[in-house]
């Protein structure tokens, strides 16, 4: 069992094979210990997330990597507090953000936001409200998260649009999401997300719907913005190589469990679990174009 000592606090992490965690230098803002998410009646429940434990510190860049069915999206939704009030059963020994206990039930049907946590979804087209202009959507967020006079709001809106590289303010502010190109929509989504002043930004499959070149730009922008805002970034993705390039720490999920927590810089040498090593090897890269056969991954069962 490895213990992590941070500012005098001992945070025990249950034994996971291949655990090699860099000591957290920053204050932990998100703590998850023994998080389990299941659906269905008790005698027939299906667990999407099983016994997951980790922490995120302020300013950390963490990636959760897994394939379809690994439970990574469910985990992200649970961390953003969006499973409260749904038919999902969320249990944990600890699950808190900034001191707020996330396990508390929520009565209303409308999901409740956790102050300081913002989540962005895969597709900007479905994330943005189709019937309102970009200006109004950004304006609403700016007004809620910054104390401003009404007439200063348009200025801040322009500021944020400029920050994400959109210069054609007048037209974009009056445009609706479907009138913009895919790349612009992505940037607008990021502008709105950062304008909400998050301390933790959760990005669910930020690049899966994008072409490789646009994906790079978006990830560059996202990491820049979060660094500037001193916000932590949690990205959920199936693209291991992309996460290697942009995250400091990687958690690998398989069938609902975290099977590996490792620093991104050391993943090739330090990865212990077979699944992680298999994933690393079997992603096709440009360097392996002339091999006769690609390495494949046989299905790996998660421990216990």
């Amino acid at each position: 069992m490895s213990d992590v000592i941070s500012r005098g606090q001992i945070q025990p992490i249950p034994a996971i094979q291949g655990l090699l965690l860099q000591p957290a230098q920053t204050t932990p803002i998100l703590l998850a210990d023994g998080l389990t998410v299941s659906y269905g009646p008790p005698e027939n429940s299906v667990a999407a997330v099983r016994d997951v434990s980790f922490t995120i510190g302020a300013g950390d860049r963490v990636a959760i990597v897994g394939e379809s069915g690994s439970g990574k999206t469910t985990l992200a939704l649970a961390l953003a507090g969006f499973l409260r009030g749904t038919s999902a059963h969320v249990t944990a020994r600890t699950l808190s953000f900034d001191g707020i206990d996330l396990r508390a039930a929520v009565g209303s049907r409308l999901p409740r936001k956790i102050p300081g946590v913002t989540m962005v979804f895969q597709d900007a087209m479905t994330s943005l409200d189709p019937l309102w202009t970009v200006g109004s959507q950004l304006g609403v967020v700016v007004r809620k998260n910054e104390t401003l006079r009404r007439r200063d709001v348009p200025l801040r809106v322009r500021h944020w649009l400029g920050r994400v590289g959109l210069m054609d303010f007048d037209r974009i502010v009056r445009a609706r999401p479907y009138e913009l190109s895919g790349g612009m929509r992505q940037r607008v989504m990021l502008a709105i997300a950062i304008a909400s002043r998050p301390r933790l930004l959760i990005a669910d499959e930020p690049t899966s719907a994008l072409d490789a070149s646009v994906a790079r730009e978006v990830m560059d922008l996202m990491t820049e913005l979060t660094e500037e805002a001193q916000a932590a970034l949690l990205m959920v993705s199936h693209d291991l190589h992309m996460c290697q390039g942009y995250a400091d720490r990687i958690l690998v999920m398989l069938q609902g469990r975290v099977v590996e927590q490792v620093a991104a810089a050391q993943i090739e040498t330090a990865a212990r679990h077979d699944y992680t090593r298999g994933l690393l090897r079997c992603v096709p890269t440009l360097d392996c174009f002339d091999v006769p056969l690609l390495p494949t991954l046989c299905s790996v069962a998660a421990p216990g």
């Binding site: 659906y39 379809s68 999206t73 939704l77 749904t86 979804f121 895969q122 499959e205």
Partner: peptide, 12 residues
């Protein structure tokens, strides 16, 4: 893949 809570029911 959607973020929709409803789509998860299908996955389950």
């Amino acid at each position: 893949m959607t973020g929709s809570v409803g789509a998860r029911a299908d996955k389950i």
